[in-house]
């Protein structure tokens, strides 16, 4: 109970940031907007969606997942900053519940993710993207996206805790972009060289993207001759999340409790 109460207080802390700097939300959406222009209009005209269909419809689920992926870098930077500036030590010297700090960070990332996702969904609709399988499936896809974002936030929280400095975290943060591109988010994997295809299809991002495409009824959900994760994207996404959470939740809590020991 105390974990929950303290976690909520820390979620509130992050939401107050948003209130003081609403620009953060805009910044969160800049990259997807750039991607819509670059891929939706520039490269997209030359990309053929497997099984046919509109490329921008194919692209949007990739962008939804990519913004979720960014929770990894933002959590990593936030946590490393708190640690570098002594805020983490202050919290650890207080009778605050040990697990509350990572819970608060990831909870806040999930809530801000929902706000960002709603804006992104609205922009998608404006670009001609549609959810074809009804509200129930669409809500399921939103659930998958939030679970994915929350998972990435836990991974980022752990990475932030083990960063030697805020600067290192800042320097590593942009790597999430190429990581999210090593997937089926922007281009189909069936044209890639064999080894790269294995890497990309094994990337948890690909499973999440494919799961969203299938729940939203967007084209390119399953690649022909694809690997198991892409043939069963929803199951693969849930398994990936369960696995990553099972590893990174205890690691982060333990690391927070014992940092500096």
């Amino acid at each position: 109970m105390i974990v929950l109460a303290d976690g909520l207080t820390l979620v509130q802390r992050k939401l107050l940031h948003l209130r003081h700097q609403p620009g953060t939300l805009v910044a969160m959406l800049v990259m997807p907007a750039v991607m819509v222009v670059l891929f939706g209009f520039v490269f997209g005209s030359a990309i053929k969606v497997p099984g046919g269909g509109n490329y921008r419809e194919y692209l949007m689920p990739g962008l939804f997942v990519m913004t979720g992926m960014f929770a990894l870098s933002s959590a990593m930077v936030d946590v490393a900053a708190d640690q570098g500036r002594g805020v983490t030590d202050r919290l650890r010297s207080m009778p605050t519940a040990r697990a509350a700090v990572p819970v608060g960070q990831t909870g806040a990332d999930t809530v801000t993710g929902l706000i960002g996702l709603l804006i992104l969904l609205a922009s998608g609709l404006a670009f001609g993207w549609r959810a074809h399988h009804g509200l129930g499936h669409a809500l399921g896809a939103v659930g998958v996206l939030l679970l994915f974002r929350c998972t990435m936030s836990w991974v980022g929280t752990y990475l932030g805790l083990i960063m030697p400095s805020e600067q290192t975290a800042d320097a590593l943060a942009p790597l999430t972009l190429p990581l999210s591109m090593l997937s089926n988010a922007f281009v189909p994997t069936d044209g890639m060289p064999g080894w790269l295809r294995v890497v990309c299809e094994g990337n948890p991002i690909s499973a999440a993207v494919a799961a969203c495409r299938s729940l939203f009824g967007n084209p390119g959900a399953t690649a022909a001759g694809g690997s198991w994760p892409l043939a069963h994207p929803l199951a693969a996404t849930l398994l990936w999340s369960a696995l990553l959470l099972a590893v990174f939740v205890p690691l982060s809590v333990r690391r927070f409790t014992r940092a500096g020991l």
Binding site: D6, Q12, R13, L16, H17, H20, R90, M94
Partner: peptide, 21 residues
């Protein structure tokens, strides 16, 4: 360090830390 949250006001900082305390 000044181990407080720079992106919050002084009062918000103290309220949040007070609740955590």
């Amino acid at each position: 360090h000044a181990a407080v949250d720079e992106k919050l006001t002084g009062r918000e900082n103290l309220r949040i830390f007070g609740r955590l305390a």
